[in-house]
Design a protein around this nucleic acid. Sequence first.
RNA 1: GGCCGGGUAGCUCAGUCGGCAGAGCACACGCCUGAAAAGCGUGGGGUCGACGGAUCGACGCCGUCCCCGGCCA
Length: 312
Amino acid sequence: MTTATTHLALVGPTASGKSALALAVAEHFDDVELVSVDSMQVYRELDIGTAKPSRAERAAVQHHVIDLVEPTEDWSVVRHQAAARAAIADIESRGKRALLVGGTGLYVQAVIDDLRFPGEDRGVRAEIAARAAQPGGLAAAYDELARLDPSAAAHIDPNNERRIVRALEVIHITGKPFSSFGAGVGECGATMFPVRLAGVWLPRTVLARRIAARIRAMRDIGLVEEVEALVRRHGARVSRTARQAIGYSEIISVLEGQISSVDDAFERALRRTATFARRQRMWFRRDPRIEWFGTSENPAAILPALLQSWSR
RNA sequence: GGCCGGGUAGCUCAGUCGGCAGAGCACACGCCUGAAAAGCGUGGGGUCGACGGAUCGACGCCGUCCCCGGCCA
């Protein structure tokens, strides 16, 4: 990524119409290929619930970072960072532009910003987590963090066990403070390579309607059957990260008897999607580098403005 | 019709001996460096079914009525 190619990125909440817009953009320009920045579309066999682009769409436009791994594998921001950057380098080497499309905010920043992840040690983490899970252990862990890295402790809530454990893990395996690995994702400075960021903005009521319609459609075209096949094939080996996908998680719970009905599962999936969309809005909203394209109707309405903004 | 159980936040429900109305979820606002479709924080919300009574003081005790569920006729 040494040339001056300016790449593109389209972000926004789930069900905002990003994928269709990105497809239309790529079909309009002959030098654009898509790079998915979605933590769940990397999984093979998770198709319906992740709203993965169809075969036809993928035949029409080159898509990257989709269907990379088996549902039994763990995925993470680090793997996505590497895969997406490799895809971008490949696209650029062929003289084309990458269009990053995604709703996973941390992953988008991991790709475009200079985020360096300090490594991990699952064993160390498990040990720290086990201590933190003891009665009073969480407070003790937070005290330890406050002593070893006051700056990190100031940014982590005393109740946020997962982040406290992770910060301590980094300190233990690197010998350096967690906070020494970067200013954090709130930085939003210069990107690693030239990229223009655009966001899709829809009124909340419109988005809520689209989310409800999408969940209903997923059910109609066979999400339950897809999850049943997934469980039949892999059972308990479906990875920790794959099984938390919205829709899959709830339907798996039905199959395992923790949720009583499929109706209930879809009800929960709908609510979880709505809160997910809210967190996405919060994440992207703080990034001043994003140029927002809004409409109160069909997201396709913003296509002309996008093309205008991105034509070179 | 009789007996029993219930009526408290948008929903599901706690509420000890009568002493400032609570939780979870939802909703709103926000945080975020290896689970991120994850994890976490803050906040707004109440005619405690209605009316009457005893009490310094009632969601709680007494009475009447209304509504819901179950059982018996």
